[in-house]
Amino acid sequence: MDKLRRVLSGQEDNEELGLTAQVLDTSSLSYSTRVKWFIICFASGILCSILGTALLFLPNGIKLFAVFYTLGNISALASTCFLMGPLKQLKRMFDPTRLIATCVMLLCLILTLCAVFWWQKKVLAILFCILQFLAMTWYSISYIPFARDAVMKCFTTCLS
């Protein structure tokens, strides 16, 4: 009880602050541990997305599809927290270069679930899943230098 009182009053000692910083900074984990957890989260994200797609063809499978596909994208997004750390991940997600893609992606994650559970609109849920995919792709390629420029040039060349 005394420890809780110290933490809540802001009187925790430096050792506790150091432990909190280590938890929030993945550099406290070994490189192999970070890579292993990245692979586990990313693979589970892919598995959830594939499972959701397979469940789409069941009767009333649209709800399962939306949930598993959204969980898959969240898991894939969370996997990078193991590589760079959660705080650094959040800072990079909301950089000016990624801000729009991040907001669209997070909004589509929420709207997908709203469309399937509250609004009961299957076509809208599928549309939001497609937008999830596009936003996640645009967000992901923002980490590759000049990749967005290359994609834009490719599309403008194909369309003209």
Rank of each mutant, 00 (worst) to 15 (best):
L64P: 07
L106E: 08
Q120A: 15
T156E: 11
F155H: 10
F38W: 02
G45A: 06
A150S: 13
I62L: 12
M136P: 01
K3H: 05
G18E: 09
A54V: 04
F155W: 10
E16K: 10
E12K: 03
G45C: 01
S160A: 13
S32V: 08
C154Q: 05
S28V: 05
I50V: 15
R98T: 07
L71K: 09
N60V: 11
L71S: 03
L58P: 04
C103V: 14
M105F: 11
Q11E: 15
T157F: 14
M93A: 08
L77Y: 01
T137K: 08
G52H: 01
S160K: 13
L4G: 07
G10K: 02
W37Q: 02
C154N: 03
L19P: 02
I144K: 00
T156M: 15
T70I: 06
L134P: 00
L106G: 01
F42I: 04
S32C: 11
N73S: 08
V23A: 12
L107P: 00
D13M: 05
Q22P: 00
I40M: 13
E15V: 12
R5A: 14
Y143H: 11
L90D: 07
Q11S: 08
V7T: 10
A125S: 05
F117H: 13
A21L: 15
I74A: 06
R98H: 08
T26L: 00
S79T: 03
A150C: 03
L134Y: 07
T26P: 02
L58D: 08
C48G: 02
P96D: 15
L19N: 04
F82V: 04
P145S: 11
S142D: 09
L107K: 07
A147T: 00
G52F: 00
F117R: 15
W138S: 07
T53P: 03
S9F: 03
L111C: 08
R34A: 03
M93Y: 11
G10N: 01
Y143T: 07
K3T: 08
L24N: 02
L19S: 11
L77D: 01
V7L: 14
I141D: 00
M93R: 04
K91M: 14
V104W: 08
F117S: 08
G85T: 05
K63W: 08
L107N: 07
Y69Q: 14
I40W: 12
V23S: 01
L8R: 10
S28Y: 12
I100L: 12
Y139S: 12
L19T: 08
C41T: 11
S140Q: 02
S75L: 15
T70P: 00
V151D: 02
G72H: 06
I126P: 03
L127V: 12
